[in-house]
C-alpha cells in the first residue's frame, strides 16, 4: 500500500538534504513524526547529516507545529526546518 507523504525542507535543513521537497513512501510502521524522523535519518547521506541533532529540528504537519508523537499518514504535508528567526 502506498502511503505517499509530501516532505518539504527549509533553511539549512533544505541545504543539507539537498532538495526543497519530495514525495516519499515510508514503510507502514512509520505512523508518527518521531518514527518518520528516525526512518529518514536511516536513509543516510544528506538526511543523516540534516537530522544529526534532532533538538535543532522543528516539524509541522499540514502547516501546524507538531511534536514527535503527532501522527502522520498518507497525503500529509510534513515540513522539517530549524527554529524560526523572523521578525
Amino acid at each position: 500500500m502506498l502511503r505517499a507523504m509530501k516532505l518539504v525542507y527549509f533553511a539549512w535543513l533544505r541545504e543539507r538534504v539537498g532538495k526543497a521537497g519530495e514525495t516519499l513512501n515510508p514503510p507502514a510502521n512509520v505512523t508518527t513524526v518521531g518514527a518518520l524522523l528516525e526512518w529518514l535519518k536511516g536513509q543516510g547521506g544528506g538526511y543523516a547529516e540534516a537530522l544529526k541533532d534532532l533538538s535543532a529540528v522543528r516539524v509541522a504537519v499540514n502547516q501546524e507545529y507538531a511534536g514527535p508523537e503527532a501522527t502522520v499518514g498518507a497525503n500529509d504535508e510534513v515540513a522539517l526546518f530549524p527554529p524560526v528567526t523572523g521578525g
Binding site: F10, A11, P83, V84, G86, G87
Partner: peptide, 22 residues
C-alpha cells in the same frame, strides 16, 4: 511572530554566509 512565524534569516557579509540562530 519571532518565535512562531516560519521565517529564516540567511546573513551574507565579507566573511561569507550564515543562517541566523534562534
Amino acid at each position: 511572530l519571532k518565535t512562531k512565524a516560519p521565517f529564516w534569516k540567511l546573513e551574507a557579509g565579507p566573511q561569507g554566509q550564515a543562517w541566523v540562530e534562534a
